[in-house]
Amino acid sequence: MSETLLDIRGLKTHFHTFSGLVKAVDGVSFDVRKGEVVGLVGESGGGKSVIGFSILRLIEPPGRIEAGEILFDGEDLTKKSEVEIRAVRGGEIAMVFQDPMTSLNPVYTIGRQMDEMLQLHTELAEPARRARCIRMLEDVGISEAESRLNAYPHQFSGGMRQRVVIAIALLAGSRLIIADEPTTALDVTVQSQILKLMRRQISERGAAMILVTHDLAVVSEMADRIVVLYCGRVVERGRTEDVIAHPAHPYTRGLLDSIPRITDRQHRLRQIPGTVPDIRELGSGCSFRERCFRAQPLCAEKTPELAPVRQTLDAACHFPLEETKA
């Protein structure tokens, strides 16, 4: 088993909004090992993105990291000063955002935006930086890289822009990439290209990745391990094969079942009944109980803790699903 790179323990990020306290992330723990891809999965509003932003301390008021540790290489990022965390941002840990149309600054050239990353995090001189930018663009599959450095974002297609964003994220040799729905805004055909590209580039550089997505299909292809979130809590985590093949939490089961299959004879898509509850009004008990087909009175009384269900799989459920024989 390889070394732990990132270890998140009991992270709580809350938003003190006008209409009440939103516990967007409420006691989340998981770790990322060196060179590993961890998928963070869940519905919209499940707190996935907030975890990514919390790691880089990009949470803005009214949001706040209330508790927990984010150990990166053994150092707690939540305790770092603003200047120290700036060296981590983009340097040790880089981020890729959801919408490539908006994550590049429209008034600067691609070259300048790439160069900024190297200026911030390396000591390289101008010619060396330029050479590195060109090579990086070629690595992410952009032809005529040298002349593209002078182009502006609006001259690129969505897929190309996301390649540029990925290039920027990889540029300074970060050891962890947080990719927040990196392909959601792209065409399906471009999606798989970008995913393959990210996977290859990241593994070539020995970096680790946290892939935030609502798309289980994407995760099952990309991730080594999966963390499933529901209402700001981890409901299941484990090796990808186990979680996909034999989920222990009914929520994960529901997510998997709602992926349409071409072999399915059913005409209606399956879905999880009900909607995500208002996160401001969660009381005690399992927050999934009202949508759960296995709910018992106990589920309303006691909040289930995350506990090992099988050797490589933890779940937060009083009545976890058995391993089914295929």
Partner: peptide, 10 residues
């Protein structure tokens, strides 16, 4: 977003 991205760059 590009402001957030710039912050994420450090």
């Amino acid at each position: 977003d590009y402001i957030r991205f710039a912050r994420a760059k450090g």
